[in-house]
Amino acid sequence: MAVTADSIKQSLRIDLSDDDTIIQTYIDTAVAYIQNAVDSTHTVEQLETYPQFNFAVSLLVQFWYSNRDTDMKETPYQVVSMIQQLRGKIIGN
């Protein structure tokens, strides 16, 4: 199940649709970021079969949205951990 703007808004308790475009941009960017960090030879559809993928996308989008006015230098530890788990699962298969 893909991460959607509505699922992000629900997690962040956002009721308005003013930021839907930026949230969707964050989702698209997070999907590409995590796909490339894990294994760019796997399609998004293949990666979405792992719960860690969608969780990492959701966490990263929420982080970017919540911290868009600050200097973000590092990817959150939880996202890095999910990426590492996905790499292990893919290499193990």
Rank of each mutant, 00 (worst) to 15 (best):
A37I: 07
T29M: 06
Y26C: 07
F63G: 00
T43Q: 02
H42I: 04
M82Q: 03
A30W: 00
L86P: 00
N54R: 02
T4W: 08
V31M: 04
L60V: 03
K73M: 15
K9N: 05
Q78L: 13
A5D: 04
L86S: 04
M82P: 02
V80A: 11
Y77E: 13
L16Y: 10
T43C: 03
I22T: 10
S66R: 15
K89W: 09
I27Q: 00
T70K: 14
D18L: 06
H42D: 04
R87D: 01
Y33T: 11
T49G: 07
I8S: 00
A37D: 10
V44E: 08
Q10K: 14
I91Q: 06
T21E: 12
I23R: 13
Y26M: 07
Q46R: 13
Q24N: 15
Q62F: 06
V44D: 01
Y33I: 01
S17C: 06
R87A: 05
L47G: 01
A2S: 15
I91V: 09
Y65M: 07
T4D: 07
Y33N: 07
D6A: 12
Y26E: 02
S66H: 15
L59F: 09
K73W: 13
R87T: 05
V31E: 03
G88Y: 09
V80G: 01
A5C: 10
G88D: 11
Q24E: 14
I34V: 01
S66M: 14
N54Y: 00
V79F: 06
Q85N: 11
D28T: 15
K89N: 04
A5W: 06
L12H: 11
S7C: 07
D6W: 15
V3Y: 02
Y33D: 03
G92W: 08
Q46H: 12
A5G: 12
T25C: 10
A30H: 01
T70N: 13
I90R: 01
E48W: 04
D18H: 02
Q10E: 11
I27K: 03
E48G: 07
L12A: 10
Q24C: 08
F63V: 03
R13Y: 04
A2Y: 08
A5Q: 11
L47S: 02
A30L: 00
D18Q: 12
A32M: 06
T41R: 14
D15F: 12
D39S: 07
Q35W: 03
D18M: 14
T70I: 15
Y50F: 13
A2E: 08
G88S: 15
H42T: 09
A56L: 02
S58T: 13
N36T: 13
L16S: 14
